[in-house]
Amino acid sequence: MAKVGTQDNPIKLVPDVSQRLLLAEATGIGVDDEGPVTVISKMKEPVHGYDLYLKNLMRNPRLNCMDLRLGFLLFDLFENDYTEATFLLVEKSSYRMSKVGEDGLLYLHDKRQVSTGVEFLEKQSLLEIARKSNIGTDQAGLIATLNRLHSYFYITCTEISGVNTASEKKHFDYQTNEVLLSNETEVVHIRLNDRFTKYDFTRKWRKPSKSEQSCLLT
């Protein structure tokens, strides 16, 4: 299999317009033909909007404790630590960065998400960062939580593997298909959804059913 994230085999990042099933279920946003990005763009920005990303996290009654803790951690990393967007979901000692990218860079197909078309590859493990932040988890737990945060549109995740190369995703319909991380994901590109820093969703979250509430407590 050809090496991914190179000039000849770039990664196609999952676009913001991709389907977000949990967001649609929880708010009704994105259930029509317009899609979540178009609907959100029509919302009015609040006159006084402070710490909206964190408020939008805290006031979503459908998030569990792990969702909240990892959501806060990612926000802190991107807003305060100037971290690169690509993370390992395994321990650093178990992965060779030479398996992806070229000359320390990850090459991307679409410049709409990253204007330069490349991003620096830093060997950083989200698993190890989470554990240092007293978030007890493993690779499977990280993948499950990242998929939930992605489906609620707090973040957008792209698995760095052959399934997300430009050639593999040619003509793929993102607007009607949700693209989640596979259970084997080792490297992921993550970006925050900055719309959650501009718009107030706190009154849009629907309360979960009793059965859903019980699941959140387990």
Rank of each mutant, 00 (worst) to 15 (best):
M1D: 15
A2R: 09
G5W: 11
G5E: 05
T6E: 07
T6F: 09
P10T: 07
V17A: 05
S18G: 12
S18A: 15
I29W: 00
G30D: 06
D32L: 08
E34G: 10
S41W: 02
P46S: 14
V47A: 14
V47P: 01
H48I: 12
D51E: 11
L54E: 13
K55S: 15
N56D: 03
N60S: 09
C65S: 15
D67C: 06
F72I: 13
L73Y: 01
F75A: 05
F75K: 12
D76S: 07
L77Y: 01
L77M: 14
D81F: 12
A85R: 15
T86D: 05
F87M: 04
L88T: 07
S93L: 07
Y95H: 08
R96V: 11
M97S: 07
V100L: 13
G101S: 08
L106A: 07
D110M: 03
K111A: 11
R112A: 11
V114T: 10
E119M: 12
F120Y: 12
L121F: 04
S125I: 04
L127D: 00
E128Q: 11
I129M: 05
R131H: 05
N134V: 06
A144T: 10
N147G: 01
H150W: 08
S151Y: 00
F153C: 10
I155Q: 03
C157A: 15
T176H: 13
T176W: 02
N177H: 12
V179R: 10
L181C: 06
H189C: 08
H189K: 04
R195F: 14
T197V: 05
T197R: 15
K198W: 12
K198N: 07
Y199C: 04
D200E: 01
Q213F: 02
C215A: 13
L217M: 06
